[in-house]
Design a protein around this nucleic acid. Structure first.
Ligand code: ZN
Length: 243
DNA sequence: ATTTTCAACT
């Protein structure tokens, strides 16, 4: 019943994460893999130990290669009142430095699977990336997200980057997730302070995603009404959050 | 103009 990569015979709930669902934060896994021998001594760490990589509790999952055009248009629409966007999509690009220039490594798309393990896309990426990244390479990672990160994921990403100084991250968000929430705002500031480029997706970013992550079958990208006006509203909001 | 949002519900 356990995943293939869990050496533990009987997974038990993560000690520091609530079992309940429904939070807008990434409320943690419903099953635990990895971390099995780490805390077997009964030495329960304090409640919100920031040094714990909770993404390690999620089994690595492979990304998708492509988005369908209608999925992209619906989920990356940067409209102000984004009703019904109940999922988050993350298009990523990983490059590495070779003699001072960037070489393509991989790209793909993650979407959270709430029915599966409730893993937010940010942690899906970290779980997947952590499984194969080399400490001897310098990586440049770019995220194009339909929603900006929640506060808990922001903390996790910041911790990850502090412990992996060979990884550089840029985040471009189509929309700002719960931007009036002080904890969300703090999470975005934490990312910036950690060296992450945090920005709003512009026309050229949408076009780039269309060309590289959408199964467009030769169709041209047709921008939606208000794409630029919405961008400027979001940029203003983000600048106020980041100071 | 609205006040949504990495669901939850059948
Ligand atoms: Zn999250």
């Amino acid at each position: 019943v356990t995943g293939p990569c869990c050496p533990c015979p009987s997974p038990r709930p993560h000690p520091s994460l609530p079992a309940g669902k429904g939070s807008r934060e990434c409320s943690g896994p419903t099953r635990v893999q990895g971390l099995c021998s780490a805390d077997a001594s009964g030495n329960s760490s304090s409640e919100d130990s920031p040094s714990v990589f909770t993404f390690l509790s999620f089994a690595p999952r492979n990304p998708m290669k492509w988005l369908d055009p209608q999925t992209f248009y619906f989920n990356f629409d940067n409209l102000q009142y984004a009703y019904g966007r109940y999922h988050c999509y993350l298009c990523f690009q990983v490059e590495r430095e070779v003699n001072g220039s960037l070489v393509h490594v991989d790209m793909g798309v993650f979407v959270n699977q709430s029915a599966d393990d409730n893993c937010h896309v940010e942690l899906c990426f970290l779980s997947w990336f952590y499984a194969w990244l080399s400490p001897d390479e310098r990586y440049h990672v770019t995220w194009f997200m339909s929603w900006s990160p929640c506060s808990q994921c922001a903390q996790q990403v910041a911790e990850f980057l502090k412990k992996h100084s060979n990884v550089n991250l840029s985040i471009f968000a189509a929309r700002l997730y719960h931007f009036k929430d002080p904890e969300i705002q703090q999470g975005l500031r934490t990312l910036k302070r950690t060296g992450v480029q945090v920005a709003i997706m512009y026309f050229s970013d949408f076009l780039y995603c269309w060309n590289n992550f959408v199964r467009h079958g030769g169709m041209r990208f047709i921008p939606w009404k208000g794409i630029n006006k919405n961008y400027w509203i979001l940029v203003t909001t983000l600048e106020e959050i980041l100071w």
